[in-house]
Write a protein that binds this DNA or RNA. Structure first.
Lengths: 222, 222
DNA sequence: CTCTAGCGTCTGACATGCCAGCCTTGAAGG
DNA sequence: CCTTCAAGGCTGGCATGTCAGACGCTAGAG
């Protein structure tokens, strides 16, 4: 969204990242740099820089003197990223119960209201945007910028599976209810309850992935 | 340590990173790329790549068309990185209490023994290496590679302040005792106790930083 | 038919040259 | 003496050319 598009390397980076996240490039697919250069009208330099950065994020794998490839999706890694996210977000929820300022609380309620609108309209993409926003409200209003960075990095990877996941329609209503419970706990200043509510919320996400992995095991590598 | 030194960019990267961590380059100091090129006998390409990667890690700040500078140390960021580390390591300790395999447990006891040797010899650098190794044993034997990556990234930044910190001599014995308590809790398979023990251990680290920040506030920026 | 050796091609790594901004500095004008 | 503005010297961003290594295909030998 608010990414810098000043440099050409950034443009290529955004373009490639979106293509990988959206699944336009299959996991394991080779990345043809020169084709990218021609299609985007830039030289190999910004493309190399962009691919290098994506390799740093583990979204692509560079095999020296051989080729660059879209990273495969490993079930173990997905589980571990969820584990990390859970550990961190639970503590963030606890921290919010301790010291979330008023304007942050208002932003949460605003987010819940917008989420309810999306649910009533059955607008899943819009609800998902609100879902992401819900978690970002916490980090932003707590001033936890580095945590936000870490979570964004995790979300980038989890986003790849989420787009395959396509939650059943009913789930978004329950997700909203889980958000409401988290907000209620934060409002009450109940640290333990906030942490537990966030934990349950993310446990459901993890279960969704597991059931998906059982249904479509061919899409998940070791 | 076990870094790839195949490419020249990696060499420059390691060189610069160590210089920043060791404090050879002061926070805020400009990075003279051409001087680096001459000193290391390489062209600007690998240097730019290395600096770019360091900027991605927030160890340097690149101001386009102006210059590259060593990142300053922000107290708020140090606290937040400790917060993240605490959240993650506590859950790792809990996970270890649940399912750490036998060889991991043996590695922990081996680490404790080596740590005790270092303490008895009053060898702080060696004890610190064991300290780092203690936490790595957990992630390695639990197969938590991504968590290890996140923690390494955090440690990289915390390392900058740790080298200034220079723990008082007595503390390393207490640190060892904290490690022992964590191992005992893991051995007992007591999830809550393991998490609490790790939490106390990292709380002490955080307190050390706070007392240092009070003593030498001029070294820590906002 | 199979295995192996050799060559061609594609890839990433690197060197070099050029360009466009910013920051400084010095000179000119008030 | 202070202010202002323009030019030059920095910087990083980008384009292009070259090199070396890895894979794959093919041809030849067994």
């Amino acid at each position: 969204m608010g990414e810098r598009v000043n440099s050409k390397a950034d443009q290529v980076y955004d373009e490639l990242k979106e293509a990988i996240l959206a699944g336009a490039l299959d996991p394991g697919a080779p990345i043809d740099k020169i084709a990218l250069c021609e299609r985007l009208g830039v030289s190999r330099f910004p493309v190399s820089a962009a691919v290098s950065r994506l390799a740093f994020e583990s979204l692509v794998v560079i095999e020296p003197q051989h080729g660059s490839f879209v990273a495969r999706i490993s079930g173990a890694e997905v589980r571990e990223r969820m584990f990390i996210r859970r550990a961190l977000e639970c503590e963030i929820a606890a921290e919010a119960a301790r010291r979330l300022p008023k304007d942050g609380f208002l932003a949460l309620e605003e987010n819940l209201a917008r989420g309810r609108e999306a649910v009533d309209a059955g607008d899943r993409p819009r609800f998902y945007a609100q879902d992401v926003g819900f978690h970002q409200v916490l980090t932003t209003h707590l001033g936890l910028h580095r945590s936000s960075e870490v979570l964004d990095g995790l979300r980038t990877h989890l986003e790849r599976v989420r787009r395959m996941l396509m939650l059943p329609q009913g789930r978004i209503r329950e997700t909203l209810a889980e958000h409401s419970e988290i907000v209620a706990a934060i409002k009450a200043g109940d640290v333990g309850r906030a942490r537990a509510a966030m934990d349950r919320h993310l446990a459901v996400t993890a279960e969704n992935f597991e059931s998906f992995a059982r249904e479509r095991p061919e899409l998940i590598s070791a």
